[in-house]
């Protein structure tokens, strides 16, 4: 029963071979050289310290920190027989009893504004869903800003995402933050950029053909508490009006990224210090506050199922959203 098909094993051995060949170049790059290269071309590497108690007390006076995150649950089978439920949460460190929840749903079966994709284009459908999630997060953040007046807002994920997926609402949030001087930060747990990789590739002397991701290059390269603030000209994000940095925020070798509005560039280091302060030293590198907000916004699939079963007519539920897979018992 537990025998493994030989072919599968061979495929995995092959994958290992290909990957180690591909990355031999990265792995063999001298760390000192890479650091110098980054300092020269990407931005300065600096060590930052945690915030002091006085600084934290100042933040508290100024309204605390607002954490924003969203979640999505999908029930049902293949297109178009599913429903996706979105929930956004903005939670302030000060007003713990006043969490701001926003909710929305999406189902291809229901055309909200006549914006159905003319063809069944999967990309377009996907973008609607992403927009819904982004919008709900932005709305939660907007209401949080208006009601709770925080010192800074930490959003889960890159800010550029909102810019792309929900432009109008995003501009609204952006404008309000700038007007009220509220610092807006996006914390990216999984960085997908390849800023350094592209620069390496461009450098003719190095003779590197592949474009590597930053995540791979920066793995284990920074010391705990070290950050790289990225020069505006090397990142595409700058065009959209963002400033970014990389930082190793915990003892784990992975690196996180952070986005700020360009107009709030002066807070770059300060926010790096804030995130460092809120991240457990032995953790995965994610600020505890984001984890807390995340755990509160998340709804278990079981709970969603329960909600649908309680509030949808049984017939509708069975007919539309119960897939063959859900009934499988083996």
């Amino acid at each position: 029963m537990y025998t493994i098909a030989n072919e599968l094993k061979d495929k995995i051995v092959y994958l290992n071979k290909v990957l180690s060949e591909k990355y031999s170049q990265v792995l063999s790059l001298d760390e000192m050289f890479l650091r110098e290269f980054i300092e020269e071309n990407v931005g300065p590497i600096r060590k930052v310290n945690k915030l002091t108690e006085e600084e934290l007390a100042y933040y508290y006076q100024k309204g605390g920190i607002l954490g924003v995150d969203g979640s999505r649950n999908r029930v049902g089978g293949a297109y178009p027989h599913f429903v996706e439920i979105y929930q956004g949460l903005a939670k302030s460190t000060i007003y713990k009893d006043k969490p701001i929840y926003k909710a929305d749903f999406y189902s291809p079966l229901y055309d909200e504004k006549g914006e159905f994709p003319i063809e069944d284009s999967i990309e377009e459908e996907e973008s609607i869903r992403n927009r819904k999630l982004s919008t709900i997060e932005i709305e939660a953040a907007l209401e949080g800003i208006r009601q709770l007046k925080p010192y800074a807002v930490i959003m889960d994920g890159s800010l550029i995402r909102y810019d792309i997926e929900s432009f109008t609402r995003w501009m609204e949030l952006r404008r309000e933050c700038e007007e009220k001087d509220i610092i807006l930060v996006g914390v990216i747990k999984d960085i997908k950029t390849s800023i350094i990789g592209e620069l390496l590739k461009e450098d003719k002397e190095l003779n590197i053909e592949e474009c590597f991701h930053d995540r791979e290059l920066l793995y284990g390269m920074l010391e705990y508490g070290e950050m790289i603030s990225i020069h505006g000209e090397v990142t595409k994000k700058a065009k959209e009006g963002f400033s970014s940095l990389f930082m190793r925020s915990s003892k784990a070798p992975t690196v996180i990224g952070m986005d700020l509005l360009d107009s709030q560039k002066k807070y770059l280091e300060e926010m790096a210090r804030l995130v460092l302060t809120l991240t457990p030293e032995d953790g995965r590198g994610v600020p505890l506050w984001i984890d807390i907000v995340d755990s509160e916004v998340k709804i278990s699939d079981k709970m969603i199922r329960g909600l649908l079963e309680s509030y949808l007519d049984r017939q509708i539920l069975e007919m539309l959203f119960i897939s063959e897979r859900d009934k499988r018992t083996l």
Binding site: L56, Y60, G64, K96, T279, P280, D282, R284, W289, I292
Partner: peptide
């Protein structure tokens, strides 16, 4: 993955 005491203290300073 334990919330260490310094983070908990910092959050407390921030009001949480």
């Amino acid at each position: 993955e334990l919330a260490d005491s310094s983070v908990i203290e910092s959050l407390k300073a921030l009001g949480y």
